[in-house]
């Protein structure tokens, strides 16, 4: 963080919030309710990052069809995050590879980072909300 950013941050009481998404989009409610926190949190003008690791990478998978299990496909909401000024999305490379996925399989632009780089990013946060 530059000095200027830091000064601004202190004046506006801006903290770095990371939402760490670890679970598949369906099967449990964690992904959906994490997204609900992100949307509310956007109104607080904090520095927000979303990270997708483990089965959490499936949350961003293109072509989700949830009708068969009687649930709403909420994945289009990830594409709307831009409108909330939530633009820092990160996906763990190892998690993608372990599942045979690449960045092209994702429904939004996200930066692909290795576990070590993500660790450093996590270290730089003020708040990590893990779902």
């Amino acid at each position: 963080m530059s000095d200027t950013q830091e000064t601004e941050g202190k004046q506006r009481n801006v903290k770095r919030f990371m939402f760490l998404n670890r679970k598949a989009p369906y099967g449990t409610i964690y992904a959906l309710e994490s997204l609900e926190v992100v949307l509310i949190g956007a109104a607080f003008d904090q520095d927000v990052s979303l990270v997708f690791v483990d089965d959490g990478v499936y949350q961003l998978k293109k072509g989700q069809q949830s009708k068969g299990i009687g649930q709403k496909n909420f994945s289009p909401t990830y594409r709307a995050l831009e409108d909330y000024d939530v633009e820092k999305l990160y996906v763990e490379r190892e998690s993608l590879e372990a599942r045979g996925l690449t960045a092209e399989d994702l429904l939004v632009p996200a930066r692909v980072l290795g576990a070590a780089e993500l660790g450093a990013l996590m270290e730089a946060q003020d708040v990590v909300l893990s779902f």
């Binding site: 009481n13 509310i40 607080f44 904090q46 003020d126 909300l129």
Partner: peptide, 21 residues
């Protein structure tokens, strides 16, 4: 109350500790 109270806790507390699965 609303989720804003969670974000507020993140802003105001020195540490926010998450207990979950």
């Amino acid at each position: 109350s609303g989720l804003g109270q969670l974000i507020q806790a993140g802003i105001e507390a020195d540490r926010l500790v998450v207990f979950g699965d």
